[in-house]
Amino acid sequence: MERRNCMTCGADLGEAFGWSRMVNCAHCGTAHILRDAVFAAAGSAGVFHDAPGLVRLMQPVQTLQGRFLPVGVVRFSYGRGAWDEFWALDDLGKGAWISVDEGDIALQRPVAAASLPAAPRERSAVIAFDDRDWTVTEAETATCLAFRGQLPEVFVLGDQFTFLNASSGDGRILSGEFWPGGHAWFCGPWIDPFDLGAK
C-alpha cells in the first residue's frame, strides 16, 4: 500500500489509497484526488461545521449489522437542512455508506437491477426492486457542502444531484441518486439510533 503526502503542506495522508479515490489532508484541509494513477491536489474540502452526531470520523461504531469504522464523510445540503454520508469500513475492510440525518440513520451499499429507473421519480411513485414494491417517500435536490477523510468517489464542492428515498416497510431504505449522465442506487437497513453504540 502506497503512502502519500499532502501536496500543499507535506503532511502524511495515511495508507488507505488501495480503494480510496479522494482524501482530505487532516492538517491543512486540502483535498486530493487519485485518478488513473495521477495524484493531484483538488483544492478546498469545504467548511465542516461540527454538529452533534452519533457517528464520528475515525471512531468505530457498533451496529446490529456489525462494527464499522467511518474513514470519510461528505456533507450534503437539502436546502433547509443537511445530512452526512459516512464512508465506513467493516471488519473485513468492505465499505458501506452510513447516512446520518438528525437521528435518521441508514446503512447502505450500492445495488443494481434492471427494474431500477435511470431517472428520478416523484413522491408516492412505486418502484419494483428485490421482489417488493418501494414507495418514494422523499425526492429532493442535494448540494455537496464539504468532505473529510478518505472517500471511494470524487466529490466536488457545490455539485448538485437529485435524490430519492423509497420504503417498502421491511426495515430497509432504497435510495437513488441522479446527475446528468449518470445514476446510482443504494439499499440497506435503517439503524435505530438507540441501537447504535460506540466501540
Partner: peptide
C-alpha cells in the same frame, strides 16, 4: 440534534415516549 424527533405524550397524568419505528 443526534437522535432527531420524538414525542412525549401526556395522557391522564402519564408520560409516554414515542418515536419513529423503521
Amino acid at each position: 440534534p443526534s437522535h432527531g424527533y420524538a414525542w412525549l405524550t401526556l395522557e391522564e397524568g402519564h408520560l409516554i415516549f414515542s418515536r419513529a419505528w423503521r
